[in-house]
């Protein structure tokens, strides 16, 4: 942990920071921020921070439903070839004794299912892949 006093535009700020392999932790003006090492350019960081919370839709990288935390797959509601609607609940996960619903961020067809009921999955594992369907 590092503590410094920085003067920015005439104001002195007390900053505490810590660099880890994952990125940079900052405590600044009464709030804690984490800047991921993976997103090291300014523009990317800004985009990352302004992203809305999104109700448990995994971090929807377009077609993929991704595990938003490490946990256990409790229920898989779809199989390959199924048509799904946006916001339809595809997977129920359990972590820290609570259930979380993972919903489709868009409509489409299920291209791949990478999750088995009862299995333990790590953070960011792609659980379901969707493909767009031509209207």
């Amino acid at each position: 942990m590092r503590e410094l006093r920085l003067e920015i535009n005439g104001r002195v700020h007390r900053v505490r920071s810590l660099r880890t392999s994952e990125g940079l932790w900052l405590h600044f003006d009464g709030e804690t921020y984490f800047l991921s090492a993976a997103n090291s350019t300014k523009a990317k960081r800004r985009a990352d921070r302004s992203r809305g919370p999104g109700a448990m839709t995994g971090h929807e990288s377009g077609n993929c439903i991704v595990a938003p935390m490490p946990g256990k797959v409790k229920k898989v509601n779809v199989k390959v070839g199924d048509m799904v609607q946006a916001e339809q609940i595809l997977i129920v996960m359990e972590a820290m004794k609570m259930e979380y619903n993972l919903a489709a961020s868009r409509s489409g067809r299920v291209k791949e299912v990478n999750a088995q009921e009862g299995s333990q999955v790590e953070l960011d594992r792609v659980l379901i892949e969707l493909e767009a369907v031509e209207p």
Partner: peptide, 27 residues
């Protein structure tokens, strides 16, 4: 839908750039 998106001060970028440039050994 949880907390509304956070607005972080522009200054944070300046602080981050400074800290990222400095050597890790100081930590």
């Amino acid at each position: 839908n949880g907390m509304p998106p956070r607005e972080s001060p522009e200054d944070i970028e300046t602080v981050a750039e400074m800290l990222l440039k400095s050597p890790a050994a100081e930590e």
